[in-house]
Simulated assay, not measured.
Amino acid sequence: MSEPLLELKDVRVGFHGRTVLQNIDLHLNSGEIVTLIGPNGAGKTTLVRIVLGLLKPDSGHCHMMKDLRIGYMPQKLQIEPSMPLPVSRFLSLAGASKKQILNALTCTGVEHIYNSPIQTLSGGETQRVLLARALLRKPQLLILDEPVQGVDVNGQRELYHLIKIFRDETGCGVLMVSHDLHLVMAATDKVICLNNHICCSGHPSQVSQHPAYLQLFGHESSELAIYTHNHNHAIDGHVIDCGDCQSGNQDKSQQ
């Protein structure tokens, strides 16, 4: 069996005398999509910070595969409104060429905003640009913190589907953070329900019926919206091949 991308064992973190995370065991393999769910204050962001290496646990261990490439998509982007910053320039700050940037924007369905000021984008367009930036790193592990924030329901379906396509095309692992299971079910392999500790984990259809999940989110949340698809397309609806994101990253000679 191949080495896991990420493994946490008995991780504990506390701030100012308050325990934020305790007894956290988590492992994530290549090609696996794992979704963290939990209420506000459950410790989801703290756990992501540990995985990103921004925070050390008070106890326990966090092991990552050697030289692991991580692509990170934050919850939101804050840019000074008066700063002239087109999408092309924002993405070039990641060290990418024009070809790579256009490939990544095509994969996320927003290549038409290449020259648009980033401050003028809609919430959905901004999230797609942030995802494109994460994909530019050719990640072995893609970490997505509330990736559908500010996106309407149809856009959420397409964005989750796009993440699944990228996983299928590249074999990367995905660690995704969400508030609940709504619309996530068809796009994830495993769910971890977090409330300062792991309340339950497993396939989303099992977790949605678990007493700990129902206690946190209520019985209405167990009625999940299942989204299925039989072909690959980007968020704007056109058929795509996310392999282009990979091939585009191979060529850094064209500026």
Results as ranks from 00 to 15, higher is better:
1 M>P: 15
1 M>S: 13
3 E>A: 09
4 P>V: 11
9 K>G: 09
11 V>R: 03
11 V>K: 04
12 R>L: 15
12 R>W: 10
12 R>C: 14
14 G>R: 09
16 H>N: 09
18 R>I: 08
18 R>G: 02
23 N>R: 08
24 I>Q: 03
24 I>C: 00
24 I>A: 01
28 L>V: 09
28 L>T: 03
28 L>H: 04
33 I>E: 05
34 V>Q: 11
37 I>C: 06
38 G>S: 12
40 N>T: 02
41 G>T: 05
41 G>M: 04
48 V>D: 01
49 R>L: 04
49 R>F: 03
50 I>V: 14
51 V>S: 05
52 L>K: 12
52 L>I: 13
54 L>R: 13
55 L>W: 07
56 K>S: 15
57 P>N: 00
60 G>N: 04
60 G>L: 14
61 H>T: 15
62 C>R: 01
65 M>Y: 07
66 K>F: 04
67 D>S: 13
67 D>W: 02
72 Y>D: 09
73 M>W: 00
76 K>L: 06
78 Q>H: 15
78 Q>E: 14
80 E>W: 08
80 E>R: 08
81 P>G: 10
81 P>S: 07
81 P>W: 00
84 P>E: 02
84 P>Y: 00
85 L>S: 05
86 P>T: 10
88 S>K: 09
91 L>W: 06
91 L>C: 12
93 L>S: 14
95 G>N: 07
95 G>F: 07
96 A>D: 07
104 A>G: 09
106 T>F: 02
107 C>P: 11
115 N>E: 08
118 I>S: 11
123 G>F: 07
124 G>P: 11
124 G>D: 01
127 Q>N: 07
133 R>N: 10
135 L>A: 13
139 P>A: 04
140 Q>L: 07
141 L>K: 07
148 V>L: 13
152 D>S: 08
152 D>T: 05
154 N>C: 12
154 N>S: 14
163 I>L: 14
170 T>P: 04
172 C>W: 02
176 M>K: 04
176 M>N: 06
177 V>M: 04
178 S>F: 06
179 H>N: 13
179 H>R: 01
182 H>W: 08
183 L>R: 05
186 A>Q: 07
190 K>E: 05
190 K>S: 13
191 V>G: 04
192 I>S: 08
192 I>H: 08
194 L>W: 09
194 L>Q: 00
200 C>S: 12
201 S>G: 03
204 P>V: 07
204 P>Q: 05
206 Q>G: 11
211 P>C: 00
213 Y>T: 02
213 Y>W: 04
213 Y>A: 01
216 L>N: 12
216 L>Q: 11
217 F>D: 06
217 F>W: 02
218 G>C: 08
219 H>D: 14
222 S>R: 13
226 I>Y: 02
229 H>C: 15
230 N>L: 15
230 N>M: 14
232 N>G: 14
234 A>W: 05
235 I>V: 15
237 G>N: 07
238 H>D: 12
239 V>G: 15
244 D>Y: 14
245 C>P: 01
246 Q>P: 07
246 Q>G: 03
251 D>I: 15
253 S>N: 15
